[in-house]
């Protein structure tokens, strides 16, 4: 029932102004695959993975720029949409925010559909 067109927000801006309170954590790149909407992450090997544990985690400004570059390229190649660099907790690829944890795992009310165990 939510309305996607209620707010027009650039996903990267979300990460800029809504997830910036975890300076000690790292960054990972995520989006939804265009053709099927599945949640994906940029992996360390440069491929895209549905497994957040395989995500490439960056902790430097250069690293974050590389994540953004990969997202931009994938978006332009029409491979993913809703691209965002998101914050993680320190020393793990676990997303910092509840919203992104739910994206990584699945609806909290349907553990039977979970993609991985909750943290």
């Amino acid at each position: 029932m939510a309305d996607e067109n209620t707010q027009v927000i650039e996903p990267s801006e979300i990460s800029a102004h809504r997830r910036s309170n975890k300076a000690a954590g790292g960054k990972i790149a995520t989006g939804n695959r265009l053709r099927d909407g599945v949640v994906i992450y940029l992996a360390a090997n440069g491929e895209w993975t549905t497994d957040v544990d395989q995500a490439r985690r960056e902790t430097t400004a250069d690293g974050e720029a590389a994540l953004k570059g990969a997202l931009d390229a994938a978006f332009k190649a029409n491979y993913l949409i809703d691209a965002a660099v998101i914050d993680t907790v320190p020393s793990d690829t676990k997303p910092a925010r509840l919203r992104e944890q739910i994206r990584a795992v699945g609806p909290t009310v349907r553990p039977d559909l979970a993609r991985r165990a909750n943290w």
């Binding site: 939510a2 996607e4 067109n5 939804n32 265009l34 099927d36 909407g37 599945v38 949640v39 978006f75 029409n78 949409i81 809703d82 919203r99 739910i102 994206r103 699945g106 609806p107």
Partner: peptide, 21 residues
Amino acid sequence: SEDQFRPLRLMNGLYLQLHAY
């Protein structure tokens, strides 16, 4: 592009949510 497609899919009830369309 996604910008062009978004209004077209929305008028058909197709959203992007957290996990999928």
